[in-house]
Simulated scan of single mutants.
Amino acid sequence: MPEWTPLPRSFYQRHPTEVAPALLNKLLVRADGRAGRIVEVEAYAGSEDPAAHSYRGQTARTATMFGEAGHLYVYLSYGMHWGSNAVCGPVGEGWGVLLRALEPVHGLDRIRAARPAIRHDRELASGPGRLSQAMGITRALDGADLVSNDRGVCIVCDGTAPPAVPVVGPRIGISKAVAFPWRWHVPGHAHVSGRAGASAARGGSG
C-alpha cells in the first residue's frame, strides 16, 4: 500500500458541516493495510444538535468528542455495533463527523475476512457498523489520534477530490433534528448505505 501523510489537524478544526463534505473521497487507512474511500458521512454538532450524544454535555462516554480535533470517537450503538467519528472544531464543543460508508480499496482480503457473512462487496462497509467491523474499529480505538496515527488509524488524501456537488439531505436512523440536511454522499456511488441500510446500520453520533 502506498505511503500517505495523514490530514493535518487544521483540516478538522472547523464546524462539522464543513468537515463532513470535505471528507468525501478521502481514505480511512489502517496500519495492517486496510483502506477504504469515504463515500458517506453525517455531521453532528454538540449543543446545537439534539441528535448528537454530546448535546447535553460531556459524559464519560462522550469525553473524546469534547477533546482535541482530529481524534477518533468510537461509541457502541444500540448495543450492537461501533460507530466511528472524526472529532471536529474547538476543544469543548462536542462536534464530530460520523463515517457512514466506505468503498474498500486496499486490503480487501482482510476486509472480507472481517465481514465473512456478506454476499456482495458493496455491503462490506455500507453503514457505520459495517464500516467499523470491516476496518477493525472498536472502543479500544476511542481517542486514537488520526493526525499522528498513534494507534494505526488515520485519514489521508490520495489526490482524489471530493465531488463538486455531493448529494446532501437528512441524516438516517435518528429521531431528533431529523430535518437537518447534514448527511452527504458521493453521487451514485454503489457503496453508499442509503435508506436501505438504515435498519441494519443506524446513524447517530456525538
Rank of each mutant, 00 (worst) to 15 (best):
P170M: 15
R183W: 09
S77E: 04
C157M: 00
G206M: 12
R119A: 14
G36Q: 13
I118R: 14
L24Q: 01
L146Q: 05
V97L: 02
M80A: 09
E3G: 05
H189V: 04
L131F: 06
V19P: 01
E93F: 00
A125Q: 02
A134D: 01
E18H: 06
L27M: 15
L124C: 08
G89I: 09
A63P: 02
S148D: 10
V153M: 13
I38M: 08
G203I: 07
S193E: 02
G169R: 11
A86G: 03
S148M: 01
A101L: 07
G96P: 02
L23M: 08
S175E: 10
A20R: 02
A69T: 12
G206Q: 08
A161Y: 05
M65F: 10
G127L: 10
Y44S: 12
E40R: 05
S175Q: 06
I38T: 09
A125W: 00
L146S: 03
A52K: 08
Q58G: 00
L98V: 01
I111V: 15
V97F: 06
G96M: 03
R130Q: 07
V87C: 03
A177H: 13
R183Y: 08
A201Y: 07
D49L: 12
V41E: 10
C88R: 05
R61I: 00
K26W: 00
V41C: 09
H106N: 06
D109A: 15
G129M: 12
D32F: 07
S205C: 15
T59H: 13
T17K: 10
L146V: 01
I174M: 11
N85R: 02
T5E: 14
L98W: 01
H15E: 10
I38D: 04
Y78S: 09
R122Q: 12
V147W: 11
V192Q: 07
L72D: 11
W4T: 11
G203C: 06
G94W: 08
V29T: 09
I172N: 05
F180C: 05
H189F: 10
G169C: 09
A117G: 02
V41R: 12
E68F: 00
